[in-house]
Nucleic acid binder design. Structure first.
Lengths: 204, 204
DNA sequence: GTCTATATCATGATAGAC
DNA sequence: GTCTATCATGATATAGAC
């Protein structure tokens, strides 16, 4: 229990995560994972019967990071504007810590949608709650009228896309100027919140 | 020239596009491309020396769709709000016609960034022009003050991301209700334009 | 648990007949 | 140009010694 950090299994999971996340399921090679873990291929199959199973272990772990915190905020009963702001903060916080998640999910999503969608179902995520809450706020005249689904997609797009397209953003806008890139991504949460509030909140 | 539509080369390109776009370079199989084109593997190598070359042919064609029209609008000298609106319209138009492009680019972007970035350079795309124009509009008090780069990223995110994440949107929001999904994507352009105008335009 | 060696199989690519 | 047959490689997976 206490020495688990350096156990072989942990080393494999760590190495596999790195390789799968950058190369994807198809591009990843068991040899590369073994090298990165400092062991040989045979041991991979000793711990995880197949590449498929190893991938699923990693995939599940990644998805667990990507969803639960967020859906708790969504299910809470605070005011809608407040909720959107907290959502953006929490979401960007996860993304800053695991910036590879969006790219990884995008990749595997088109390779095998069913596996991914099954994982989502597990979390029983139901967006209808938010949509209803948004409509109520519109009826009270707090925010402008618009399709709640478009509003949700707008917010999530602005949060996630810059991470999924990070290489483009880094190169086209910042010419690989790393400190500027870091600063830019740290500013995202504040910018998005301001942008959304400007777009939808009706000032009395 | 006139019978090119049904030539073997055209059939290969069509089949290769379908397979590469859905499976990616790593996931695609020459056998599958051959099957889909109704020929055998040997012919693929007769027309295109290797999988690598066949992929590059497809990849280049895809990129050509994704960029040029857009960069023309960006380089023009109309007012910034007008320009953003035209950009959104043109971009969404391309995406509606080729909805697989974002997913494909995302996938190959993390597999081999350099190839992709080289293609972008070819178009000599320079965002600085827009950034400057945005700042001028801010100085004239037409739009609110914000980092032009964040504004650009916000707009592009709202345009592209829903297409890159189409399986999630389709399933989580619409439970695969195809007509509703179609309608939703057709509304995107109008919604985004309205949203951005609300967020940044200062009413006199 | 960990290693070396090997089996098994799939894939990209080529040779050569027609 | 198109096909069948085959090669060469590299990947997953297993056997078996230690």
């Amino acid at each position: 229990m206490e020495t688990k950090k350096d156990s072989t299994e942990e080393k494999i999971l760590e190495a596999a995560k790195n390789v799968f996340v950058t190369k994807g399921m198809d591009g990843a090679r068991m040899q590369e994972i073994a090298d990165e873990a400092g062991i040989n291929k045979a041991l991979l199959h000793y711990y995880f019967r197949s590449k498929e199973r190893l991938f699923e272990a990693i995939f599940g772990e990644i998805i667990k990071y990507a969803f639960p915190k967020i859906s708790r905020i969504i299910a809470s009963d605070m005011g809608i504007v407040n909720k959107i702001e907290q959502f953006v903060d929490a979401y960007l916080d996860v993304l800053m810590k695991h910036p590879f998640i969006p790219g990884f999910i995008m990749k595997e999503l088109s390779r095998d949608p069913s596996t991914f969608l099954k994982m989502i179902m597990k979390f029983g995520f139901n967006p209808q709650i938010v949509f209803t809450q948004i409509e109520e706020a519109m009826n009270r005249g707090e925010i402008i009228r618009m399709d709640p689904r478009h509003l949700a997609v707008n917010v999530i797009s602005m949060c996630v896309f810059p991470f999924a397209a990070r290489p483009i953003v880094s190169f086209v806008i910042f010419k690989e100027d790393q400190p500027a890139i870091e600063k830019f991504y740290h500013e995202r949460a504040t910018v998005i919140k301001q942008f959304v509030v400007n777009a939808i909140v009706i000032k009395p």
